[in-house]
């Protein structure tokens, strides 16, 4: 085959012809990634009887039994909105705070820079199981148990290392002279940062935010231990409602629909930005 397998085309390159094998591979991958999800989503629209059938059931009479159970009987929308608040807020805070840290790490050469940057990363390394109890005690002392604020604070801290590491790389890609010339024109540092660097960074910040959002939205272990009836988020709620003496597959399916819908919507809406954001380094040197 003349056409090389790994063809380095820039996004502006013309359409490559004869891509049938690429399509084949991609469609296959899409199927592998999507079918398990589709299947569990379908289960969400079954009633209890079809969900426990002997062979895979592709055709069935749809039922909203499981959704009714979750939304009406269990009032899961409260957990849903808790999750929305917690994940949006912690995403906002971790990205905003982490952004400045990343900026400092990318722009300034100071003693111990590499050490600081590595220390930040080590904060992501402790297994959650090991820190559950001390975190619980800290929260109890600070009166943060079962509060949204507590979860926001914790998730902010949990996501900071990732944010800092991601954004440091992208800040490095933006040439320093852009800001400098703005400052020469009389802007303060912050004004230059806001007017020049931030807009250039916006797409990659969006991308990082989406990652952080996914991680915060899905966090289970701490949410189980640190909340009770007020601030409980989606993951512990769906686990409690779908796993009893055995796993209620149709309830799990419905729960999966509820918990993934916002994220999928999010990714669909922002995916263009996500991709261009990740490829932000395209400010050519």
């Amino acid at each position: 085959m003349k056409q090389p397998t790994y063809n380095m085309e820039s996004p502006a390159a013309p359409l490559v012809q004869r891509n049938w094998w690429v399509y084949l591979v991609l469609i296959l991958v899409c199927l592998v990634n999507f079918v398990p999800y589709l299947w569990v989503v379908m289960t969400g629209f079954m009633d209890g009887a079809s969900a426990s059938s002997a062979t895979p059931a592709w055709f069935f009479t749809p039922s909203l039994e499981a959704f009714h159970y979750l939304i009406v009987e269990k009032g899961i929308m409260k957990n849903f909105f808790n999750s929305v608040i917690v994940s949006l807020a912690s995403t906002f805070f971790s990205v905003t705070i982490g952004m400045f840290c990343a900026y400092a790490l990318a722009r300034y050469d100071f003693t111990g820079r590499d050490d600081v940057s590595f220390w930040v990363l080590t904060n992501r390394m402790m297994p959650p199981v090991a820190v559950l109890i001390p975190i619980f005690v800290t929260f109890q002392t600070a009166g943060l148990l079962d509060t949204l604020a507590g979860l926001v604070l914790l998730y902010t801290a949990m996501q900071l290392p990732f944010v800092v590491w991601m954004l440091t790389g992208y800040f490095r890609d933006i040439p320093r002279r852009y800001e400098e010339s703005a400052m020469v024109d009389g802007d303060t540092w912050f004004a230059a940062f806001r007017k020049v660097t931030l807009p250039l960074m916006m797409p990659s910040i969006t991308a990082t935010s989406i990652f952080v959002m996914i991680l915060s939205w899905n966090e289970f272990a701490f949410a189980t231990f640190l909340t009770s009836t007020q601030a409980k988020t989606m993951p512990p709620a769906i686990m409690a409602y779908s796993i009893g003496a055995d796993i209620r597959w149709n309830v799990l399916g419905a729960a999966v629909v509820l918990i993934t819908a916002p994220l999928i919507l999010f990714v669909l809406l922002l995916q263009r930005q996500l991709i261009s954001g990740l490829s932000q380094g395209v400010v050519r040197k």
Partner: peptide, 13 residues
């Protein structure tokens, strides 16, 4: 989006 779906799911799910 299809490719990204597994990552969007909560790990437990």
């Amino acid at each position: 989006v299809f490719i990204l779906i597994p990552m969007i799911l909560p790990p437990l799910v």
